Amino acid sequence: MKALLEKSLQKAINYREYRQLVERLILTTSTTGEWTQNRVNATRLNYTRMKRMEHLVDITPEKKSIFQEVEDRQYWLLFAESFCDDAAQTLPVLKKLAGLSENIELKILIMNENRDLMKRLGKDQKTILQLLITDEALNVLAQWGPRSRMATQMVNEYQKLHGRVDNEIKKQLQVFYNQDLGKQIIAEIAAIEVQIEGEMALHH
């Protein structure tokens, strides 16, 4: 597992590089992963959503302090694809959270290029967004994803009723994201960090 993580980390890119990658994809009418017109369209739309979220994410002082007090170095490894709606909403939030501490480094992995690691983590090929939090030695401390619990519940309930994920639930999710503006994600990642710091304190 650690060898796979090391290999993936070498291919990982930071947020600015990911933004530049998506810009290039839009200019060349392309996408990460297998090419389809729907994915090309989604890539373009998600870039707009990502830019919008960058200006709207607001973190309370109480939550900020949780991330500012992270003492040990961490990697946040996020699996994403340019066409993934959840990634467009989540990445700007994680970038702002990671930016609160010099000890947190956010790295983005293109899922299609890291399938071996995804399989090792027991994730199926439909799961795209996944966050791994590791220590400096790449020991996995926590996992999160593919979206907040509230958003996941919305998708699961819709699937139970309709037997599929379609454009209607995607629209409903977008309304949720527009109203929530990352608050659920911030709360859940903050809770994870509190737990990690508590466990670290026991071992120090």
Rank of each mutant, 00 (worst) to 15 (best):
S30I: 05
N112R: 11
Q195T: 13
E168K: 13
E157D: 13
R164T: 14
E102G: 11
Q10S: 12
H204Y: 09
A88W: 04
Q74W: 02
G33L: 06
N41W: 07
R120D: 13
I192D: 02
E113C: 04
L202A: 14
I108C: 08
S82L: 04
D58V: 12
T152R: 11
L141W: 04
L138M: 11
L94T: 03
L78F: 15
A151T: 01
K95S: 06
D135E: 06
D86W: 07
L138Y: 07
I169V: 15
S148I: 02
G122S: 03
A190M: 08
Q174A: 10
L5I: 10
V140I: 15
L78E: 10
Q179Y: 03
I128K: 04
A191Q: 11
A137N: 14
S8R: 01
R115Q: 15
H55K: 14
M111S: 13
K11S: 14
R19V: 10
P61Y: 07
E81S: 09
A88N: 09
R44W: 06
N167H: 09
Q74V: 00
K2H: 09
N156I: 00
V175K: 10
K126A: 10
T60A: 12
D72R: 14
L25D: 03
K2M: 09
I13N: 00
A201H: 09
K183N: 09
V40Y: 10
Y75W: 14
I186L: 07
L27Y: 07
Q184A: 12
H162G: 05
G99T: 04
Y47V: 02
L129P: 08
M50T: 11
N103V: 02
L4H: 05
R115C: 01
E71D: 12
T29E: 15
T31V: 08
E34A: 13
E69T: 13
Q184Y: 01
A201Q: 11
V40G: 00
E6L: 11
A151C: 03
D180V: 07
R147G: 06
I169N: 02
M118E: 09
I196E: 00
G145Y: 04
D85W: 05
Q37W: 05
S101D: 06
E197M: 15
N156H: 08
S8M: 01
E193N: 14
L77Y: 02
Q130A: 06
A98M: 06
D58A: 12
